[in-house]
């Protein structure tokens, strides 16, 4: 089966899943249920696509199939910035700025983080993959402790509540945030559209890309900036996704072997959104709300990634 046919099949399955999600049991109270579910669906689509696009293009830039923005600390930095904003501006300051003002400020900082990462880690172009991953994981944990510390300062009494919020969830989607995120996402997609052929060239590696006439440094920087915004969108909308990006990207490569980004990117988006839909349906139908989407996704992706690592061990 060609990659295109697989994608058509995946998209068809996705549409069915989406339909099932919106309509299941909706007869009870369609006026109340359907708009809410549509909003959740929109969050899943924007968030899932942002995760897939950022992960796949980051892997292309990094030149491997393991590192993703989430692993390299992007999401942790975004969550840290949110806490820093609350501490420095105060809750009232945040409302004064307007929710989107804080959001835009965070995006600026994310761009800064992205460029710092570029300078420090990809500078020599041949950094050891597992070393980078270890640095990323430990950095994520350290940034996480700083975030938790700030949240503790904000309200020492409600600490436990904050801790549980750091997972994927579609329950806290707000309309205005969805709107801002969707607009930003569309802008990024338009901006990235032109660079799509360049991504395929970048995938050949730094030297090949340069010999084919790509300004490697500039292209990488541009991409890292787009990725920073995408991560900000997904994290603010649905929360940190941890290892999901690795799963989505690798499944996309597996379903469309040898295909260019024109196919793997939409494939990844479809897989991510499908995964969210499946997890949400499982939470509602199979587990009867005794688990959460975040827990299910973390568990599935963690087990899968561990298996991937151990299967590869003979090669390493």
């Amino acid at each position: 089966m060609t990659g295109r046919a697989t994608f058509a099949l995946t998209a068809f399955g996705l549409a069915l899943l989406a339909l099932a999600f919106v309509l299941q049991g909706a007869a009870a109270d369609p006026v109340w249920l359907i708009p809410r579910r549509l909003m959740k669906l929109a969050a899943m689509i924007v968030g899932g696509c942002a995760v897939a696009l950022s992960s796949i293009s980051f892997q292309t830039v990094a030149g491997n199939r393991i590192l993703t923005p989430a692993v390299m600390g992007y999401e942790a930095v975004y969550l840290l910035l949110q806490s820093v904003l609350v501490v420095t501006l105060g809750a009232s300051g945040l409302t004064l700025w307007g929710g989107s003002g804080g959001f835009l400020l965070s995006i600026l900082f994310m761009l800064g983080y992205s460029l710092t990462l570029d300078r420090w880690l990809f500078r020599d172009g041949r950094a050891d993959l597992w070393m980078l991953m270890l640095v990323g994981l430990v950095l994520t944990m350290v940034i996480g402790t700083v975030t938790q510390f700030l949240q503790l300062r904000i309200s020492p009494g409600e600490f436990a509540i904050f801790q549980s919020a750091a997972q994927i969830s579609f329950e806290r989607v707000e309309p205005w945030r969805l709107l801002v995120s969707t607009i930003l996402f569309c802008v990024i997609c338009l901006a990235g559209w032109r660079g799509l052929p360049a991504l395929d060239v970048l995938a050949l590696g730094r030297d090949q890309a340069m010999s084919l006439g790509i300004d490697h440094r500039r292209a990488v920087r541009r991409l890292l900036m787009l990725i920073a915004v995408l991560v900000a969108v997904s994290t603010s909308l649905i929360g940190p996704t941890a290892f999901m990006g690795i799963f989505v990207a690798n499944l996309a490569y597996a379903l469309a072997p040898g295909a260019g980004h024109r196919l793997t990117l939409p494939m990844g988006c479809a897989i991510a959104v499908g995964m969210f839909l499946l997890a949400q349906l499982m939470v509602e139908r199979l587990f009867d709300y005794r688990t959460t989407v975040g827990i299910l996704v973390n568990l599935a992706c963690g087990v899968w990634f561990l298996a991937l690592m151990l299967r590869q061990r003979s090669m390493i």
Partner: peptide
């Protein structure tokens, strides 16, 4: 063999066990 691979695998292993614990605790 790779020195840094072991802690990465260990952190992943830990996070899977943690997710399992969370799943169990939540249910």
């Amino acid at each position: 063999r790779a020195t840094v691979l072991v802690p990465v695998a260990g952190l992943m292993y830990g996070s899977v066990l943690g997710a399992l614990a969370e799943f169990y605790a939540y249910s």
